[in-house]
């Protein structure tokens, strides 16, 4: 876990340093933030670092849960109705933007 934590810190640094050197922002979960990272596949080092960051954070997440709890949640994630309903009900178009 510690090794993963260090790997996550190192990959995060590569990505954030690349962005700040160019005055770019990271993707954000906020409504007014960027929907995707402004890193193209040609930006090889940060592009690869971000993919490795995704894998390492997921691995740390899975390990933190442990196999038993992980399997329990995986099975009931079939219950992710929340992502189906807004799509169907066209709710998303009715939410205020800010």
């Amino acid at each position: 876990m510690s090794a993963l934590g260090e790997e996550i810190a190192a990959k995060t640094k590569i990505v954030t340093e690349y962005l700040s050197a160019r005055g770019l922002e990271a993707a954000s979960l906020d409504a007014d933030g960027l929907a995707e990272f402004p890193i193209s596949p040609e930006d090889e080092v940060p592009f690869k670092a971000r993919l490795e960051l995704i894998a390492a954070t997921k691995e740390l997440y899975d390990i933190s849960l442990g196999p038993k709890e992980g399997l329990r949640y995986l099975a009931w994630d079939v219950c992710t109705l929340g992502s189906i309903v807004p799509y169907h009900e066209k709710m998303l178009t009715h939410l205020p933007r800010a």
Partner: peptide, 17 residues
């Protein structure tokens, strides 16, 4: 639990909307 969620509840969930 896995069987119940993936087998028995999957179709009902897809039918809620």
């Amino acid at each position: 639990w896995v069987g119940f969620m993936c087998n028995d509840l999957w179709l009902p969930i897809a039918n809620v909307v």
